[in-house]
Design a protein around this nucleic acid. Structure first.
Lengths: 157, 157
DNA sequence: TATTGTTATACTCTATAACTATA
DNA sequence: TATAGTTATAGAGTATAACAATA
């Protein structure tokens, strides 16, 4: 009896590790695929795509600091990516009305066009990868990952 | 009618994208946590941990080429990691009996001890992160990810 | 000629820290 | 003194390509 119980616990524990390893390997491989396709089809990178995505979500624009927080990278990196995108005419730094230290970064018209094209293609890639999943399955995993997210907030360090 | 259908399809499509974004963000955050803890508690890195893990799975040892394939990185990287681990006495290159171009890399006794300690702690981290999940939930997501893995093989490029 | 492993090099992504200009 | 942003630099982590030794 106690042996069965113990065996089950050990099996469950390994189940968590196995799940994590598969999660990591699948996610990494999708990410690599997306990075390669972004480079091959749009001559861009994931951090650049992510920055544009944030700006599309916030049409009123974001400060460098807000971008840094939302992208979860430090300020120096945001400066570099923004410099590139501005050089290509996809985003623009506008002076902040009241705080002369700060900028408001916005998508330009060209940036909106370019991003929408990339975003549609990107979404299509993702849709195809999850083709074999039902809506219920997607919704369920989405929900379960919320629990993992919660764990991450408490186990932070 | 046709509008409802269309609406549902669009909603499902966005569902795939939302799922992927959450998958990516959760996985990245767990990975960062693991990397930081490996560095803080064991003064090591994920690629080094992964190489040791492969060697523990194959006690008879692996060639540099096999390590490269299993870790899915190119040969030069394996040379570098192996050099470090050999310098610390955790792995050893043994001459291949018949092919003098090749080595067999094995864990040393110290390497086995060090890895087992790290692996136990690592597994505990993962178990805690998935604490809120039932065995059935873990098993189900593990299974669903197999489908994603399958998609990745066919959509390779 | 092909393969194993090494070396050299470069690129992406990220962090830290010193700096400037405002607040 | 604190904050917004920039610059400079460093360090993972990875890839490519030229190379030596051996098959």
């Amino acid at each position: 009896m106690s042996i069965d119980l113990e065996t089950r616990v050990v099996a469950d524990d390994h189940q968590a590790l196995k799940l994590w390893l598969r999660l990591l390997s699948c996610t990494t491989r999708v990410e690599t695929l997306v990075r390669n396709r972004l480079r091959g089809e749009f001559a861009t990178t994931l951090p650049r795509f992510d920055l544009l995505a944030q700006l599309e979500r916030y049409p009123q624009g974001l400060s460098m600091r807000e971008l840094s927080q939302r992208l979860m990278v430090t300020g120096g990196n945001v400066t570099g990516i923004t410099d590139q995108l501005e050089g290509e005419g996809l985003v623009a730094r506008e002076p902040h009305p009241s705080d002369r230290r700060s900028y408001t970064v916005k998508l330009t018209a060209a940036g909106k066009r370019a991003f929408r094209k990339m975003a549609q293609t990107h979404e299509q890639w993702v849709i195809e990868l999850f083709e074999g999943w039902t809506a219920a399955e997607k919704a369920q995993v989405y929900g379960l990952l919320a629990k993992l997210k919660q764990s991450l907030e408490t186990h932070h360090e």
